[in-house]
Design a protein around this nucleic acid. Structure first.
Lengths: 104, 104
DNA sequence: TCCGAATATGCCTTGCCAAGTATATTCCGG
DNA sequence: CCGGAATATACTTGGCAAGGCATATTCGGA
């Protein structure tokens, strides 16, 4: 899997942006208000998110409305998939343990 | 979610280590052979993985056997969970579309 | 007890990224 | 057409993390 996905998500501000955009699309100004970031910093983070496919932009006069694109996150999910059995197995074992130790 | 998880996973060498340790526990020497890293670099990455809970060590004489601990990855999975519906919905919609356009 | 194998750590250098500040761009309304 | 609002970009600077190299540590075997 590409390094880009990780280098984008390492920044907590960008993760906060994704959290907000997950609810609904927002303009740059809205994001500036809700995050503790200057406008230039916000725009720069949005550029990173845009270049890496995490968000899409829609022009509305001078406003730019940003919306989330889940594709890279789906890729992350795919990366995680083969690991998932590691804790599922553990949970299964726990479940089995509970089942077999259920003494009425 | 803590930044630590992300800062650990951003490094491709560490991800490669986790991929290897997912199969089975390995000694430092084995990891050095399989990754294109020097021994000190490998040890340093293992330290990062250990400090952040991704791996556990077991002493075997001079050897140190490293094994994966899935807890931090489970945390990552939990972070990802609320986003998952974004592409599941899309897949559901696709499935529905295919269903409703199936014309025999 | 001494040597060598396996692993860890310290120091140094280099490259990258985020934030700040200033400035450019785009577009509406009057 | 012009001023101002909304957003983007350029440039610089500080901090941090990874790798290379040398060295310390730990342990088994002869």
């Amino acid at each position: 899997m590409s390094d880009a996905i990780w280098s984008v998500l390492i920044d907590p501000n960008r993760r906060a942006m994704l959290d907000l955009l997950r609810e609904r699309p927002r303009t740059v100004g809205e994001l500036v208000d809700e995050l503790d970031l200057t406008q230039p910093a916000t725009s720069k983070h949005l550029r990173v998110l845009r270049d890496s496919g995490f968000v899409r932009v829609h022009k509305d006069a001078q406003r730019r409305v940003y919306a989330i694109d889940p594709a890279p996150l789906a890729a992350l999910d795919a990366w995680l998939a083969p690991y998932r059995r590691l804790w599922n197995d553990r949970l299964d074992a726990l479940g089995h343990h509970l089942d077999t130790t259920k003494e009425p």
